[in-house]
Structure formats: C-alpha cells, structure tokens
C-alpha cells in the first residue's frame, strides 16, 4: 500500500458516498445515469469474485464489501425506491450498455494474462470500468444544468483512477518492476476519457460559473 493508492481508494470511496448522500438526502437521482451505475455493479461483482476465496488484508476485504454494498444500493434506489425512481428520466439515459459489456467481454477472452475464470472476469472488469462512465458523460452533455453534487461525483470518480496511475508508476519503480499492461492501459484509457470533463469542470470552477459540457 502506498499513499497514491490510498488517496485513490479514498477518492473513489468519497465519490460513491457523495452520490449516495445526494440520492438519500435529496431523494433524487436527477442527472445520474442508471446505466453507468449498473455497469459499476458489474465491474465490482466481476472484480471481487475472489472476495470469499482470497484474503489480502482487512482493508482490502472491507473496501470490497463497501464498494459492492454501496454500488448495489445506488442501483436499488434508482430502480426500486418509490420516490427516487420517479426522479429517474430513462428517456435521456439511453446509452445501450450492452455495446460496452459485450466488446469488453470478448476482448477479455482474447487479451488476458491467463485463461481462467477469475483472470478473465478480472480483466473484463478492468476493461469495462475504463468505459463505464460513458453513459454518464453522455447524460451530462444532454443535461442543461448539471448540479454541483453530480459534477463533483464525476470529478472524484475520474480523479481516483488518476491516483491509481501514480500508484502503478510508484509500484513499478519502487516495488517489483512488474509490467502490468492490462491495468495500466485500461486505467490510462479510463482517465483519458475524463480529459474533456476535467477541462470543463476546472474551467467552471475557476470562472465560478455553472458546469456546462458542450453537446
């Protein structure tokens, strides 16, 4: 464990807590893509299949349970909570996430470190996580006004993987000089996808104006 990775995990946790707080406090999920949230549940379920089999550390196990629990409860709120589900506008959240799931799964079958169930699912989850934010970004482009909480949520979500990139650089030079192309390239793509969001988010923050993404 190094400071970059801890910062990454805490940023990730904060983003999810922020979203859960918005949904519970405002009883609204306006501006949030259910498609992206469902993709994150798939990402966590397929990445943490070894939760019950492999014990790395207390921290690792507890965080996995927290990520699984919070992501599943967010989808539950958006799908089944009597008040929150009324605030979900499925007409604007139209990104067909099967177009992300299938290619990522096929790619994981073709490009992986080992052709085992655990390894292929882990690889699939990395590829899927890299593109999971797309439905949310498309939704933001369609939203006239993006509320601050949603903007902050997406920003923190993008920032966490940037910390992980620093963590991988650190681990490569300081720890075991182990090349890990799959997480590295997936993480690089994931962070790159946020690039234009980061640009508009920081610009709106500097100019103290409402966050607006060009359509």
């Amino acid at each position: 464990m190094n400071a970059f990775r801890l910062a990454g995990d805490m940023t990730h946790l904060l983003s999810i807590i922020l979203l859960l707080h918005k949904i519970r406090a405002m009883k609204s999920c306006a501006g949030i893509s259910l498609r992206t949230q469902e993709l994150y549940v798939i990402v966590f379920v397929t990445r943490y299949v070894d939760l019950s089999m492999k014990y790395y550390s207390f921290y690792n196990s507890i965080m996995k349970i927290v990520f699984l629990g919070t992501s599943i409860s967010i989808v539950w709120y958006m799908r089944y909570h009597k008040v929150v589900k009324q605030t979900y506008n499925k007409d604007v959240d139209t990104f067909r996430h099967i177009f992300l799931i299938l290619p990522c799964f096929v790619l994981a079958l073709l490009i992986n470190r080992a052709f085992t169930v655990i390894e292929v699912l882990w690889t699939f989850s990395l590829y899927l996580e890299a593109v999971a934010i797309l439905p949310q970004l498309v939704l933001l482009q369609r939203s006239r006004n993006i509320d601050n909480l949603t903007g902050n949520y997406v920003f923190l979500l993008g920032a966490y993987r940037a910390f992980y990139l620093l963590n991988w650089i650190y681990r490569f030079f300081i720890e075991n000089h182990q090349v890990r192309w799959i997480p590295w390239l997936s993480g690089l793509l994931q962070t790159a996808i946020y690039a234009d969001f980061f640009y508009y988010y920081i610009k709106s923050w500097k100019n103290r104006e409402k966050l607006k993404l060009p359509a």
């Binding site: 790395y56 550390s57 965080m63 882990w122 963590n167 182990q178």
Partner: peptide, 10 residues
C-alpha cells in the same frame, strides 16, 4: 509474476 500482487488492488 505471481498472481497475488496483481489482484491486491481494488
């Protein structure tokens, strides 16, 4: 490259 420290991240 042992499997362990590949999957030890979240």
């Amino acid at each position: 490259t042992s499997n362990a420290n590949l999957h030890d991240e979240l």
